[in-house]
Every structure is written in structure tokens, then in C-alpha cells.
């Protein structure tokens, strides 16, 4: 059953092509800033994609996803501070720490539903924020400067802008590929079935909570990767990356792009962060324009930008 390429698929293809060719553009025009900006966008797109796995496909509205950005980041920063500069240690530790955090938080918060789940994930992320603020040895409130980026034994040089950008992009595309496989696998169908009708899924024999928990852990681990990359990107990590507004940003990116679509969160991250950048150049009250704009999309474009594209194609 081959279907013709829809508008949303077309946009996804163009998006990926654009991201792959971006360093070329930067090189040709000598515009270094655009590459720096897009490195950050790609990393946050990765975080948004990971949130989409639980929020869009799993129906778990986590309002504490930024915690993983901090955990991944602090894993890199703290190890660097202690003289362990190897990325082969830093990155696995970042992923493992995120996975363990997700396992603990998930097994507690997945006992609740709806608003309570939102509130409890938010509360845990705020706890992580305050714990990080209290780490005097690692900069406390002011954050922790990372003097040397993760060292991958000459395999890849993270201080090289283009190489680092491609590493981030490869991570993003790798994660999107994994999510694509996951949502169509047996596991993915169970998780989406639970979003659709939990009672029915229990009745046909699925233990709901353990499938949700595993999904929650996978998503958190993926976001921990984004956190580690983000720390290397800014050479700095501070409690601010875990603040609840950052979790809110990630949710907005997912909703804006299209929940439960493969490339929606990536598109959402690009659009959201570009708008933020452009509008803040025009006026310092950029949030006044951004707010209503988001409201319009949420009100009239159910399913986000991807949803709008899908609809216009069919009509």
C-alpha cells in the first residue's frame, strides 16, 4: 500500500535536507551564527522528540521533561570538573543517570493520571532544580562552566563547529529513527493502545503500568542525551536548564509541531526557536506576539503544524 507523498511528509523531507545542508550554507556565506543557532535548535529538537514519545504516542503529559536536560548536562559537567574528560564515560553516565531518574520518577508518578500526573512530574523536576542549585561544589545557583568539551579520543572533535553540529544532527535523526521503529513495534502499539483506552487494554491482557514505565524510561534516556549535548554546546550547565519554563517550552514545541507525529516535534522546535530569535530582534516584548500565535495554532490547528498540513492536503 504505497501512498503518494503527503504535504506533511514533504515538509519532513525538506526539513531534514535543510538541516543536513545547513553547514554548507554557513560555510558559503560565512555566517557562523546560523550554525551555532541551529546546533542548539537540533539539540532541543531531540529533547522535544523524546518528549513526544511519551506525550504524543503514550498520552503521558509530563511537565518535567527538562529535568533530563539538567541531569544529562550535569553528568557531563560534574565528570569534567572531576577530571574525567572522556565522552565515552561522560555520555554513558549521562544516559544511565537519566534512565535511573526516569525509573524512580516514573514508578511513582505513573500511579496517577491526568492533572495529577502533570503536577507530580513538575514537582519532581522542580526538586531536581533545587538540588542542582544546592550543589555548591558544582557552582550552585550560578552553574558550572565546562572548560573542556567531551573528548572522543580523536574520533570526533566537539570543538569543531561543523563536526559538533553533525554529531547533534546524527543523534537527532538516530532518535527519530528509533522512535519510528518503536511506535510501529509491538511495544509501541501497546503504548498507543493504552493512550487510546486503558480499560480495554487491561481487559485484553496488558499490564498497563509496566509498559508505560518502560516507555517513560526510554523517553527520559533519550532526553538525557540531549542534555549532555546541550552542556557541551554551551560549555556550561546550570540549574536554569531544568526550570519548569524550559519543560513548558518543550511541551509547546511538541504541540506546535504536532503531537504523535514523527517529525512534528522537530518542526515545532525549529519554528518555535526561530520565531523566538526573530521576534526578539524586532521587539523585546516578543512574548506578546508569540503567545497569541501559539494560542491560535492550538485553537485552530489541532494536531499542530503537521495536522494543518495533513488536512490541507486532503481537502
Amino acid at each position: 500500500m504505497k501512498k503518494p507523498l503527503g504535504a506533511s511528509q514533504l515538509v519532513a523531507v525538506l526539513l531534514v535536507a535543510g538541516l543536513v545542508l545547513l553547514p554548507l550554507y554557513s560555510q558559503l556565506t560565512g555566517n557562523v551564527f546560523v550554525l551555532t543557532m541551529f546546533t542548539r535548535i537540533v539539540i532541543l529538537a531531540l529533547a522535544a522528540a523524546s518528549l513526544n514519545l511519551i506525550m504524543g504516542y503514550g498520552g503521558m503529559m509530563s511537565f518535567g521533561h527538562a529535568a533530563y536536560l539538567g541531569i544529562g548536562g550535569y553528568a557531563v559537567g560534574m565528570l569534567a570538573q572531576e577530571g574525567i574528560g572522556s565522552g565515552f564515560i561522560q555520555f554513558p553516565v549521562a544516559l544511565a543517570a537519566s534512565a535511573i531518574y526516569a525509573l524512580v520518577i516514573g514508578s511513582l508518578s505513573l500511579r496517577t493520571r491526568g492533572v495529577y500526573f502533570i503536577m507530580i512530574t513538575l514537582a519532581f523536576a522542580q526538586m531536581a532544580y533545587y538540588i542542582a542549585s544546592g550543589l555548591a561544589r558544582y557552582g550552585g545557583d550560578d552553574g558550572l562552566t565546562i572548560y573542556k568539551r567531551s573528548d572522543f579520543a580523536g574520533l570526533i572533535n566537539l570543538s569543531n563547529r561543523v563536526q559538533f553540529y553533525y554529531l547533534c544532527l546524527a543523534c537527532l535523526l538516530g532518535v527519530v529513527f528509533l522512535i519510528w521503529r518503536i511506535v510501529n513495534s509491538r511495544f509501541g502499539l501497546v503504548v498507543q493502545g493504552l493512550r487510546s483506552n486503558e480499560q480495554r487494554m487491561q481487559a485484553i491482557g496488558f499490564p498497563a503500568r509496566r509498559y508505560r514505565l518502560v516507555c517513560f524510561v526510554i523517553s527520559g534516556t533519550m532526553c538525557g542525551l540531549a542534555g549532555a549535548l546541550l552542556a557541551d554546546n554551551t560549555d556550561f550547565v546550570s540549574p536554569a536548564v531544568m526550570y519548569w519554563t524550559r519543560s513548558g517550552d518543550l511541551m509547546v514545541m511538541v504541540i506546535l509541531g504536532g503531537m504523535g507525529t514523527l517529525f512534528g516535534p522537530v518542526l515545532g522546535a525549529v519554528v518555535y526557536l526561530l520565531l523566538e530569535e526573530l521576534l526578539s530582534e524586532v521587539t523585546e516584548y516578543w512574548a506578546l506576539i508569540m503567545g497569541p500565535l501559539l494560542l491560535l495554532i492550538v485553537l485552530f490547528g489541532r494536531g499542530g503544524i503537521m495536522g494543518l498540513l495533513g488536512r490541507s492536503w486532503r481537502d
Binding site: 521503529r181 518503536i182 510501529n184 513495534s185 509491538r186 511495544f187 509501541g188 502499539l189 501497546v190 496488558f206 509498559y211 518502560v214
Partner: peptide, 11 residues
């Protein structure tokens, strides 16, 4: 159902 990779709709 902890199988994460193969397309379940093609089983």
C-alpha cells in the same frame, strides 16, 4: 510485548 524494533503490523 517488550519488542521494540520489528513492525508489529507486518507480523
Amino acid at each position: 510485548s517488550f519488542r521494540f524494533f520489528a513492525d508489529a503490523r507486518k507480523e
